[in-house]
């Protein structure tokens, strides 16, 4: 990979100042960024590590909202949310593998918005709030297609706030070599609504299956979606699965997640 300047500030203000340089990028766990740089698909002039900033790590639970700081790694989230938000804990405990989960972070996953990343499905279903150094952004507005988000240059995800659902579950159909979801669905049941977040399936990245959300709000059972169909037009088609296959998986995985709630 091309060389770069490495800096590791201890405060958010120092990190933001360092990111003001042209071609500087934040580095969190690096589990996507480092492989991308090895392939020379990305060549920052400077990497600003966020892992030395104590204020960016930690989880808190108050008033029915779970707040996860941006540089908190997956292993920590999986462990610490097991009782407060088991649906999310279950999703996080299956990201990558144990070594990856010790490095990868929620902020990195959300900011990268890989079309097959797991976290965005939960963020969408729960209508989470993505907090940055500058503002708060609703999940619906934050994710803007494959690898595209509402983040400005040099803006850092400092926290993600999830309203904790009454019940929730994540089902992913893994592509067996990479273990990324070929299609993954997070279902979150609240008192007054149901959220269905779908990842891995669409050319437009993570999305909410709103038709299923309405049907499930009226009748929370897998039967409620049995007559719905998911259009294949915008689905990803590749050697692992056709668009029609992925569209089918959205429905199957949603049904399984509802049944497991």
């Amino acid at each position: 990979m091309y060389n770069f300047e490495f800096v590791k500030p201890s405060t958010l203000d120092e990190a933001l100042a360092a990111l003001a340089d042209e071609d500087a990028q934040p580095l969190s766990g690096g589990q996507t960024l480092i492989p991308t740089m090895k392939q020379r698909l990305n060549q920052p002039s400077k990497l600003v590590s966020l892992l030395g900033i104590a204020d960016l790590v930690g989880i808190s639970d108050s008033g029915g909202t779970l707040s996860i700081k941006g540089a908190t790694n997956h292993a920590t989230v999986a462990r610490e949310t097991a009782s407060s938000f088991p649906g999310l804990s279950g999703l996080v405990a299956k990201i990558g593998d144990p070594a990856v989960r010790n490095r990868g972070t929620i902020g990195g996953s959300i900011a990268n918005n890989d079309p097959s990343a797991c976290y965005p499905a939960a963020a969408m279903a729960c209508q989470a709030t993505i907090v940055t150094n500058a503002r708060e952004i609703a999940a619906d507005d934050f994710f803007q297609g494959m690898f595209a988000t509402a983040l400005d240059e040099g803006e850092i995800v400092t926290e993600v706030r999830f309203p904790i659902p009454v019940a929730s579950n994540y089902q992913k159909f893994e592509q067996p070599a990479s273990r990324f979801p070929l299609t993954g669905v997070f279902v979150a049941k609240y008192g007054d609504r149901v959220g269905v977040g779908v990842t891995g399936a669409s050319n437009d990245g993570v999305f909410r299956w709103k038709e299923a959300e309405e049907a499930l709000a009226a009748n929370f059972s897998a039967d409620a979606i049995s007559n719905l169909t998911v259009p294949a037009d915008d689905m990803i088609s590749d050697l692992h699965g056709s668009a029609e296959y992925r569209a089918h998986l959205v429905k199957v995985m949603t049904g399984r997640a509802v049944a497991a709630c």
């Binding site: 490495f6 590791k8 690096g30 480092i34 590590s49 144990p98 070594a99 990856v100 010790n102």
Partner: peptide
Amino acid sequence: CGACTVHVDGKQVKSCTMFAAE
């Protein structure tokens, strides 16, 4: 592949996907 697995501060990591400076 995980052949490069080491422990950093007691946690298992892939040393090919972490910068030495970290």
